[in-house]
């Protein structure tokens, strides 16, 4: 049986594992139970700064701490990080202060809380900020690995995690996870599916169903959206000649856009983007949301065939 876990738990675990570094501090905005920073708070209360329900304040407190030699990890729901977007822009990214922001409950997969909680634009907005590294891992192991690498990064970051459980892919493969390097999960020469977050496992399912029809797909976990792994994309274009991107995020501005931006400037291949079709979400179960947003495995498989037909 595949182990199931939520990426936010990987984040919570990483904070605990990082606690040996005395400079690591954790900032909360009344969602520590949800983003999973609560474990750090319980173990290291004096290094946890509660900012109340005040995301804008939290980001700039983080900036001040970073400017004073600390390594701040701030978290809230992905959607509420956006409330502090300009603080992130002017107060964190512009002076290139290494504040690490984590937005949990990203995407429509968040479920029945409904549209106000389902961030579908966080990856896009943070991708537009110079200096900021943007990540969206797909399982708890890779979330933990990427988070562990952040203190050495020396620049600000945004990481989206998810509320609900998805299959764990990297048990025993921890060493493969590096910021900025996409990971090839399955090999095929007909089409390459590049995915992030909860849609990585959906893409693997899509590849299985394509294989039954004799279509061989490469599946890539592009956990880092910025800087995007351009070398890998060039290799995929050369190897497969057709690409699909898959993300639980507005089809505008996220992973699909990042890949498109790269290929138009470098190599050429038809690209089909699977993502939230420029609409807000609504209340529904996680799996129902992937269906009504048309981003589940069957839609990814359909997009793969379309990309191949455009070769």
């Amino acid at each position: 049986m595949t182990r199931m876990a939520a990426t936010r738990d990987g984040y919570g675990q990483a904070l605990l594992d990082l606690a040996g570094n005395e400079k690591v501090v954790v900032l909360e905005a009344d969602l520590g139970k949800s983003t999973k920073s609560l474990h750090f708070r319980k173990a290291y209360p004096h290094r946890t700064i509660s900012c109340g329900i005040g995301e804008q304040n939290m980001l700039l407190v983080g900036a001040g701490l970073a400017a004073s030699g600390y390594i701040p990890f701030a978290s809230t729901f992905a959607i509420f990080t956006e409330r502090a977007f300009e603080q992130m822009r002017n107060g964190v990214a512009r002076p290139n202060l290494a504040v690490h922001l984590c937005g949990s409950h990203g995407g429509t997969h968040t479920g029945t809380d409904g549209s106000s909680a389902q961030s579908i634009e966080d990856l896009a907005v943070f991708r537009t900020l110079p200096n900021v590294v943007v990540m969206h891992p797909c399982d708890d192991v890779s979330t933990r690995e990427l988070t562990m690498q952040l203190p050495a990064l020396g620049k600000p970051s945004y990481m989206r995690t998810a509320r609900n459980k998805t299959p764990v892919l990297y048990d025993g493969r921890e060493n493969e996870v590096k910021i900025g390097k996409g990971i090839v999960l399955s090999e095929g020469n007909d089409v390459a599916i590049i995915a992030c977050g909860v849609l990585v496992s959906e893409s693997l399912k899509a590849a299985e169903s394509l294989a039954e029809e004799g279509i061989n797909a490469t599946v890539v976990d592009m956990h880092t959206l910025k800087p995007i792994d351009g070398q890998l994309i060039d290799d995929l274009v050369a190897q497969c000649g057709a690409l699909v991107t898959a993300e639980d995020h507005n089809v505008i501005g996220g992973l699909g856009s990042a890949v498109a931006e790269h290929i138009v400037a470098n190599s050429f291949a038809p690209l089909e983007m699977v993502g939230v079709p420029d609409r807000f979400g609504e209340s529904g179960q996680a799996d129902e949301m992937l269906e009504i947003m048309k981003i589940s495995a069957p839609y990814i498989a359909l997009a793969a065939k379309k990309a191949i037909s455009r070769k």
């Binding site: 809380d113 409904g114 106000s116 609504e282 209340s283 129902e288």
Partner: peptide, 9 residues
């Protein structure tokens, strides 16, 4: 519930 008038928020 999906499609319901009583959304989560």
């Amino acid at each position: 519930v999906l499609g319901g008038v009583c959304q989560g928020h």
